[in-house]
Structures are given as C-alpha cells and as structure tokens.
C-alpha cells in the first residue's frame, strides 16, 4: 500500500478553498459545458492544484486567487470543447465551435466584474415592465418552459418568447448605458 504523508492542515485549506469557490466556478462552467462535465472539470482543477501547485493554498482568499481559479476553469472548459470537437466529427460540431467563441467572449470580464453583473442584473430585472418581469422570472429563475408560461397566462407561446426577448434586450441596453 502506498503511504502518502499529507498534513491535514493542507487538506482543510484545500477543502475550504474548494467550498468557497465551488458555486461560482460551477455556475461559470455550466454556461459552456454540460452540467455533469462542469462538476468534473472544476474538481479536476483543484486536483491539479493539489498535485502541482499546492503553494496556491497559501494565497489569501481574494481577487488574485479567484481570478486564477476562473482562468483555470475556463482553460479546462476550452480543452474539453476542443477535445469534443476533435472526437465528434460532425455531430454537435457547430455547438462546440459556438461554445468556444462564447467562452472567449466571457473572458473579457474579470470574476469581480462578473459578480457585479449579477448584482446589476438582479436590480435591473426589478425595473422591467410588470408582465415582462414576471415572465422573465418564471422562465429564467423558476425554470418554467415558455409553453407552460403561455398556458398559465392564456397567451400564445410566441408572445411569451417575444416578452423574454424584449426583457433581455432591455437589460442589455440598460446595462450598456451603465457601462458608459
């Protein structure tokens, strides 16, 4: 049997760094890769950290550390997409291409800015016209399908969709106003 001597102090630090950053990293990865893959990739980042860059655990919790972790997860996702592209031949090829572009697009924001966006979106959602807001929340937060929302209000699915689209466009223009 292989004996590995590790200080459990270090393990505790690994555990707490993981718990601290897991929800954000997972949410980030899920934007580009399937749910189960996201969990594995995030875990792999920490496993590699443990194996080859344990000194990282001494970096205090903060922007540097967070940025490093997000970058690592981003690279892991990119590698995964690249691999899928290589093995998939035709099936889903375009999706992987799109996701690669999307992940590159996402890198223009730092994790800190991403957090700020989250805040800003939740504020702006509150400012949407009433019906528009309700539909937006039902779909994106309560995960109701647009057909279910259509049934609930007794309106057409097409109306639901245009409300969702409108909501996203309003958010985009409001938030880009703010950026300026």
């Amino acid at each position: 049997m292989k004996t590995m001597i590790t200080s459990s102090q270090e393990l505790y630090r690994l555990e707490s760094a993981y718990k601290e950053n897991l929800p954000g990293l997972l949410a980030y990865a899920r934007r580009f890769v399937p749910e189960d893959v996201a969990g594995d990739l995030v875990q792999d980042v920490f496993v590699r950290l443990w194996q080859s860059y344990r000194a990282f655990l001494n970096v205090p919790e903060g922007q540097t550390r967070q940025a490093y972790l997000f970058r690592s997860v981003r690279n892991a996702c990119k590698d995964w997409l690249k691999h899928q592209l290589a093995v998939s031949r035709y099936e889903g090829e375009t999706l992987y291409l799109m996701k690669q572009e999307e992940i590159d697009f996402s890198s223009r924001r730092t994790p800190r800015e991403q957090e700020a966006l989250l805040e800003a979106v939740s504020v702006q959602v509150g400012q949407l016209p009433e019906r528009c807001r309700e539909i937006f929340i039902m779909h994106y937060q309560k995960r109701m399908k647009s057909v279910e929302i259509a049934e609930y209000y007794g309106i057409s699915q097409r109306t639901v969709e245009s409300q969702l689209y409108k909501a996203l466009q309003i958010l985009r223009s409001e938030l880009s106003e703010k950026d300026k």
């Binding site: 929800p23 954000g24 997972l26 949410a27 899920r30 934007r31 572009e101 999307e102 697009f105 996402s106 991403q114 966006l117 989250l118 979106v121 939740s122 959602v125 937006f136 994106y140 937060q141 996203l168 466009q169 958010l171 985009r172 938030l175």
Partner: peptide, 15 residues
C-alpha cells in the same frame, strides 16, 4: 453572447 451572459446572470446558478 451578451444576451446569453445576461440570462445566465439572471439564473443565479451559483446557489
């Protein structure tokens, strides 16, 4: 991609 980013932010997937 901007719209997708906003929708993702609204989903609050990090709970």
């Amino acid at each position: 991609f901007s719209l997708k980013e906003l929708a993702d932010a609204a989903m609050k997937g990090d709970e």
